[in-house]
Amino acid sequence: MATKKKIMIVNRKAPHGTIYAFESLEMALITAAFDQDVTLAFLDDGVYQLVKNQDTRPIETKNFTRAYRALPDYEIEKIYVERESLNARGLTPADLAVAVEVLDADTLAQRIMQQDVVFSA
C-alpha cells in the first residue's frame, strides 16, 4: 500500500453489557496488522473499557479487557482518552489498566478531523 491511512476506532460504549467493546477491540487488532496509522479513542462510557481490575469470572464471560494492555505490542501507540468523560465518571488515569494520552474534547475533535477513516460501534 502506497500511503498509510489514518484510521481511528472510536469507543463510546461500556464493556460487558453489550459486545461492542469486545468486537471493536478485535477490529483494532486486525487494523493494526495492516500497517496503517491506527488510533484508539475512548470517550463517554467507552472509558469504562479501560478500567483496571476487571474480573469477569463471576459473570462467566471471556475477560477480553486484558488485551488492552497488549495494544503497544500490536504497535497501537495512540490511545486517547477524553478528559471530560473521565471527570464525569469520577475516574483518573490512575484508574486505567493502560497508559493513555488524556485529551480534552476540543483536542479530540481536532484529532477526529484529521482522520481518513473513523470506525465506531
Binding site: 500500500m1 491511512k5 477490529m27 486486525i30 487494523t31 495492516f34 496503517q36 477513516v117 465506531s120 460501534a121
Partner: peptide
C-alpha cells in the same frame, strides 16, 4: 470472510460510512 476484508476495503475507499 475475515475482518481484514473490512480494513482492506476501508483503505481503498474514498469514504467509509458506518451504520449501527
Amino acid at each position: 470472510s475475515g475482518l481484514g476484508q473490512l480494513v482492506e476495503a476501508a483503505i481503498q475507499a474514498d469514504r467509509v460510512v458506518v451504520f449501527g
